[in-house]
Design a protein around this nucleic acid. Structure first.
Length: 263
DNA sequence: CCCTATGTTCCCAA
DNA sequence: CTTGGGAACATAGG
């Protein structure tokens, strides 16, 4: 479930909790995760986020790449004993344990993941450039909603924030990406930065599963304008929010104030 | 049994 | 070769 604001929240909290600590042991509890080589004895040199990936740098050559996918959570157990249900791996430190809980088992953990190509993709929290979006969308027939979810274009936007951004920009999610006008990309870029920053300040959106490193809910669910609000009145115009499916993903929008011309 | 779920990857067709 | 759409992955909950 985590998107950019949720992963950024974990990244910031991890820096406060395990930066500089020595790993005593990495215990893999789900063999679907594979068998990363032994990292015991290595220090956590730095922690960063690339899109929805969490990178834990251990030394010049070794970096743990963690992706939580749909249902992954990362929890800090300072002193508590035992393991929550669906625990998939544990990293043990002198002052506590980092536990990955993941019911659906989609999360991935790898040492220097060759599939992580998000490194040179623009990060929308730092800068979301309207001109880059517009150029990348040239000739694209896919709905703009699907385009924003494409991690090769911008890394970190997920289903909730794509819906929220398009609503804030008054752009219909079905519009073909290549058909948007420069002013519409500027609007998307502007509201996108604002929404992602605000959601990060709120420590993410806890609509159901999401919890931060310490098991606390985020607060951005209190600010959602369309996601999960089918049938409720649009905060801007009062019309009922609609739900549709784009690319197999639930998509919420206001057909009245996101009524921008097709094609 | 049906559908849905904050994500990505694979396969296939155009 | 690129793009886009749908199924698949695995599990829980309504």
């Amino acid at each position: 479930m985590p998107e950019l604001p949720e992963v950024e929240t974990l990244c910031r909290q991890l820096k406060q909790t395990i930066l500089g600590a020595v790993i005593e042991e990495l215990v893999i509890l789900d063999n679907k995760l594979g068998h990363p080589e032994n990292v015991a004895g290595l220090y956590v040199r730095s922690i960063e986020r690339q899109g929805k990936f969490l990178l834990i740098r251990l030394d010049q050559v070794r970096t743990l790449h963690l992706h939580l996918r749909m249902s992954g959570r990362l929890l800090w157990h300072g002193h508590a004993d035992g393991l929550p249900a669906h625990s998939r791996f544990v990293i043990r430190f002198p002052h506590g344990r980092l536990i990955c809980v993941d019911p659906r088992r989609f999360a991935t953990l790898a040492l220097d993941d060759p599939k992580d190509r998000t490194a040179q993709v623009p990060d929308p929290l730092k800068a979301l450039s309207a001109s880059k979006l517009r150029k990348a969308a040239q000739g694209r027939q896919a709905p703009v909603k699907s385009f924003l979810l494409n991690q090769a274009v911008v890394a970190g936007i997920g289903n909730i924030y794509a819906c929220e951004m398009l609503h804030a920009a008054s752009v219909n999610p079905w519009r073909r990406a290549g058909s948007l006008q420069p002013a519409e990309w500027r609007k998307i870029a502007r509201v996108g930065r604002t929404i992602l920053r605000h959601a990060t300040e709120c420590r993410g959106t806890s609509i159901s599963d999401w919890r931060d490193l310490y098991g606390e809910k985020g607060r951005y669910q209190l600010h959602l304008k369309v996601y999960g609000r089918e049938g409720l009145p649009c905060a801007r115009c009062g019309e009922k929010i609609q739900r549709t499916a784009i690319g197999g993903r639930g998509t919420y929008y206001c057909a009245a104030c996101q009524k921008s011309k097709e094609r």
